[in-house]
């Protein structure tokens, strides 16, 4: 075994955080991610405009697709998590779901190859929207005092326990929730991109080695890369679903009556 793994020319090996920063396209304000976000927004607008231009009772194929996405989000997420109140949030959830799905799937689209959500900034913005939304809705529905009382104070607890429990509830409801929401999406996309980089770039590095055995075993790396690309589709859909479900859950708990 004299085969040394010689790094192929120009390949970023081992993959590092630097690989998540493609070069700027035009000045510091226009990066690949900017264009991808605009692309996702444009795709969604065009898709929903085109499919709902003239809705018919017997839907065409596009209208059927748009309606089934909306129906999925409305019935399986909004109504399940929030009950009847969820229906009026369903359009927002649908757009959020579609946006996250499209931006996540950019991670495996050839040519784009990286998801904007693998930069923490984009999940943070999405989570902040959710955060502000459920706080605002809770305060508007209950008033500031009773909303805080409802979220922080548990009924039926002897009063000395409140000293112990209120900091825990505060951290959970006002800090943990948005942070985990953002970090969950970010970490999944980051790890997914890193896995794909490891297997594809690692495959090329193995192919460039001078040992026949290592060159042959690069097939396993490429097969694994293909497998992981399909796995990423699953992760993209699942993470979008989880993000929207948790958003609905939080808004639903803000809307819930005092118990």
């Amino acid at each position: 075994m004299s085969g040394q793994l010689v790094a192929a020319e120009g390949l970023p090996w081992p993959p590092s955080v630097g690989d998540f920063y493609p070069p700027d396209l035009a000045g510091p304000w226009v990066t690949k991610f900017t264009l991808m976000i605009w692309l996702a927004v444009g795709l969604l607008i065009i898709f929903f405009m085109a499919t709902y231009r003239n809705p018919k009772l017997v839907p065409s194929k596009g209208q059927w697709m748009a309606e089934s996405v909306y129906g999925l989000v409305r019935d399986n997420i909004a109504r399940e998590q929030m009950g009847k109140d969820g229906i009026r949030f369903a359009p927002y959830f649908t757009v959020l779901f579609c946006f996250i799905v499209v931006t996540n799937l950019f991670g495996i689209v050839p040519g784009l190859q990286i998801s904007p959500n693998s930069h923490i900034a984009f999940p943070i913005v999405l989570a902040v929207i959710t955060y502000v939304m459920y706080l605002y809705i809770g305060v508007r529905k209950h008033g500031l005092g009773s909303y805080l009382k409802q979220t922080l104070i548990i009924p039926g607890v002897p009063w000395p326990m409140h000293f112990l429990l209120i900091p825990i509830e505060f951290l959970q409801n006002f800090i943990n929730r948005p942070v985990t929401l953002a970090v969950r999406l970010f970490a999944n996309m980051f790890a997914g991109h890193l896995i794909l980089l490891v297997f594809t770039v690692g495959g090329f590095v193995m192919l460039a080695s001078d040992n026949l055995f290592i060159q042959v075993s690069s097939i396993a790396a490429f097969l694994m890369a293909i497998l992981m690309a399909f796995f990423e589709v699953l992760v993209a859909l699942l993470q979008a679903y989880v993000f929207v479900t948790l958003t609905a859950n939080y808004i639903g708990s803000s809307l819930a009556d005092e118990h």
């Binding site: 399986n76 399940e80 998590q81 900091p167 825990i168 509830e169 951290l171 959970q172 800090i175 943990n176 929730r177 985990t180 699942l238 679903y241 989880v242 479900t245 948790l246 859950n249």
Partner: peptide, 30 residues
């Protein structure tokens, strides 16, 4: 969390499991 559960009570299982870990972490950290 899997999207395969149909009928559950108001606390969905994924929300419950997520908030168990969240509460524990919050309590221990704070």
């Amino acid at each position: 969390d899997n999207p395969h559960r149909k009928s559950s009570d108001e606390h969905s299982s994924e929300g419950a499991a997520g908030s168990v870990v969240g509460y524990l972490l919050a309590g221990i950290v704070v």
